[in-house]
Simulated assay, not measured.
Amino acid sequence: MSDIFSNDLSKKISVLLNEARQRVLQTVNHTMVVTYFEIGRMIIEEEQNGRERADYGKQLISELSRNLTQELGKGFSVTNLQQMRQFYLVYSKQQTVSVISEKQQKPSAEFRLSWSHYLKLMRIDDELERKFYEIEAFKNNWSLRELNRQYDSALYTRLALSQDKNGILKLAEKGQVIEKPQDVVKDPYILEFIGLPEQSVY
C-alpha cells in the first residue's frame, strides 16, 4: 500500500516539476527574445546618431562585440549582434501576430516563440508569409525542426494558391481556419498524412 502511494505521489510531483520547468523555459525564451529586440533597437538608434560616417555601423558592431564579450562572455559575436539588429528591423516594421493582448502595445508583450524560431522567420522576405508561419508555429506548438519542414514543403504557397486576395490576407492574420467539413479534406496536413495529391480535392 505504501509503495503504491509513494509511486503515485512521486508521479504527481514529477508532473508538477516538469510543468514548472517548462514555464521557466518559456519565460527565459521570452525574456531572451525581448532583450535581443531591445539590443537591436539600441544598435539601430546608435547607428542613426553616427550616420554621417558610412562605415560607422560596421565599426560599432565590431567594437560592441569585443566589449560585450570581454564583459559578459559568449553570445555577443559580430554575427549575433547583426542578427539582433536585423530582428529589430524586421519586427519593428510589422506588428507580430502572436500577441497576448491587443491593449499591450510594447513589442515585449508580443513575442511568443523562441529565438531560434525568429532567426528562421526573419529570413522570410514576404511579410504575409512570415506572419502565416509565425501564427502556425505558435498555434501548433511547432519545434524549429517542424517549422523548417513546413516551410520547406511550401505550406503557405500551397494554401495561398487556392485562395483569393482576401483569403491570402486571412491566412496571414489567422493562419489556417477550418470553416466547412470539406476544408478538413483540403488541409495539407491531412493530405500529407493520407498521401493524396492536393490537386485531387480542389
Rank of each mutant, 00 (worst) to 15 (best):
V184R: 13
V184I: 10
L60A: 03
R23I: 12
Q59F: 02
F111E: 08
D8G: 13
N7S: 12
Y88V: 07
Q95R: 14
L72P: 02
V78F: 12
Q26M: 14
L17E: 08
R123C: 01
V33H: 10
S10K: 08
N49V: 13
N148A: 13
R21A: 09
M122A: 02
H117N: 00
D125V: 15
N141P: 00
D152Y: 07
L25W: 10
Y133P: 03
L128T: 00
I178C: 10
D187Q: 00
N67C: 02
Y88P: 09
P188F: 01
V201F: 06
G75S: 08
K103I: 09
E173A: 06
I4H: 07
Q70F: 01
K58H: 04
L81K: 10
R21I: 07
T31Q: 15
K131E: 02
G57C: 01
L68G: 03
L144T: 02
Q83A: 01
Y156L: 01
L60K: 05
A160H: 06
K106C: 06
R123K: 08
L113G: 13
I4C: 07
Y118Q: 05
T79Y: 15
I43D: 06
I100L: 14
K174C: 04
Q94M: 14
S14L: 12
E146C: 06
R123W: 08
E71R: 04
K74Y: 11
S116M: 14
L64R: 15
A172T: 03
F132H: 14
